[in-house]
């Protein structure tokens, strides 16, 4: 899907703006989404490890939930 957008920029801006009560400068959301991608990468990696250790076949909700707190803590600024 070549023409597909990676993510809705306006949505990301809205989300961050709502949470921070700040304005978001013009291209800052790109970096934010990049950060989000890194977070997702960490989360899925940890979840995959967790699932493998737990003997599950794929990534399940349990494994994701288990590693969510840790991944979030690592992305604490």
């Amino acid at each position: 899907m070549p023409g597909q957008k990676l993510y809705p920029r306006a949505t990301v801006r809205k989300i961050v703006k709502a949470h921070s009560n700040c304005n978001v400068s013009k291209n800052a959301d790109v970096m934010m989404f990049l950060d989000y991608m890194l977070f997702m990468q960490t989360l899925m990696k940890e979840a995959a490890i967790e699932a493998k250790q737990g003997g599950e076949r794929g990534i399940t909700a349990r494994s994701v939930r288990k590693v969510t707190a840790d991944s979030l803590a690592r992305f604490r600024g």
């Binding site: 961050v16 949470h19 921070s20 009560n21 997702m40 909700a61 979030l72 600024g77």
Partner: peptide, 19 residues
């Protein structure tokens, strides 16, 4: 669903930190 929840939390945390 768990991933969506995690990403919601992430964005909330992100917003607070950036603020």
């Amino acid at each position: 669903k768990a991933i969506m929840q995690a990403s919601d939390w992430f964005f909330e945390q992100l917003g607070e930190d950036l603020q």
